[in-house]
């Protein structure tokens, strides 16, 4: 009898243990999902749903107040035949290409020269970084004043040196480069700091080995430094491409897309169609196109380069 009891007892406890651990396992499995649930919820409400709704709206004609009328692909077909839209696309790509090139190449060279830890370099890094912490709105206003063709500081200086004034924001062929300049100027500090911190992780002995291998300064830059920071270059390029396509504040404040549509870019155009002309469907269609462009760029970029990146 006693043994039986003991046996029973043991069986029961082991069953209880396994049951308990089973429940524990399920709980442990659920725990991570519970932890990320709030952010998933926020993502769904503020990102996933709006994207879905934008795609939905792009098949409709709607002015925000009246009834929505389903028009199929008409918005997209209109886009295809809209010369202004193609100009906006051209502007956006030109803006993206120039802005990304300059806001990576200049900081890269700056980082290479400023990475040595001296007091002057620390000061210069601080100076370069300052524009980044100032609001883009303030920066836009300051540059708008400096670039004014009649009262601006730049033209005043040009005048002092006997040069003719330039319509920085009023000449259709100069306005877009002016906006690019402002964005690049604002972003230089940030990109430089990121490049410097990335360069600082390159072990000193690699430079010593290169030095013993008779490598010239430019060889060291192209064969050691650049490949070693390739993940950072990759990351910053992608981030800059995306932010370039999303440019809005500078355009809105400094040029309103003008003169003659020369600085009109995708996001500003979407804003105009949506909230000034109340053509929500058309604006949505443009939004879908923008999303597609950024998506395709990202995927292509990853495909093309990710294999050539050296991750440590």
């Amino acid at each position: 009898m006693e043994t039986n009891y003991a046996l029973n007892g043991r069986v029961r406890t082991s069953a209880a243990v396994s049951k308990k651990s089973g429940a524990g396992k399920a709980g442990a499995k659920l725990l991570p999902y519970t932890m990320v649930a709030p952010s998933i919820a926020v993502f769904c409400v503020f990102i996933l749903y709006p994207i879905g709704y934008m795609i939905y709206l792009s098949f409709f004609h709607w002015n925000l107040i009246g009834p929505k009328t389903f028009i199929g692909l008409e918005n997209y077909l209109d886009l295809l035949h809209d010369a202004d839209f193609w100009q906006v696309m051209g502007n956006s790509f030109l803006y993206m290409f120039l802005m990304v090139s300059f806001s990576l190449m200049i900081p890269l060279l700056l980082a290479f020269t400023l990475k040595q830890d001296t007091r002057l370099n620390k000061f210069l890094q601080g100076v370069l970084f300052t524009p980044y912490i100032v609001s883009l709105v303030s920066i836009s206003y300051v540059w708008m004043w400096m670039m004014d063709s009649d009262y601006g500081l730049i033209n005043y200086l040009l005048h002092l040196f006997g040069m003719s004034p330039v319509g920085w924001l009023s000449d259709p062929s100069v306005a877009l480069p002016s906006l690019i300049f402002v964005s690049v100027w604002k972003g230089i500090g940030y990109n430089t700091i990121i490049f410097i911190s990335s360069m600082e992780t390159i072990p000193q002995y690699l430079y010593e080995a290169a030095n013993l291998d008779h490598a010239k300064k430019h060889t060291v830059f192209f064969r050691i430094t650049l490949p070693m920071i390739s993940p950072t270059i990759f990351f910053l390029t992608l981030m800059n491409i995306i932010s370039a396509f999303k440019v809005f504040e500078t355009v809105n404040l400094m040029t309103q897309g003008g003169p003659m549509n020369s600085t009109n870019t995708l996001v500003y155009d979407i804003y105009q169609y949506g909230f000034q002309f109340y053509k929500i469907g058309y604006a949505s269609a443009m939004g879908v196109v923008l999303m597609g462009i950024i998506g395709i760029c990202t995927v292509l970029y990853f495909r093309a380069l990710s294999r050539r990146i050296h991750y440590r």
Binding site: P203, A209, L212, A215, H310
Partner: peptide, 21 residues
């Protein structure tokens, strides 16, 4: 005289191989 011009070669403790090559 620069290290590269001294006609010496060095083997480092941690080898110092170029990881990207």
């Amino acid at each position: 005289v620069e290290p590269g011009d001294r006609h010496v070669a060095m083997v480092f403790q941690n080898y110092a191989l170029y990881p990207t090559m």
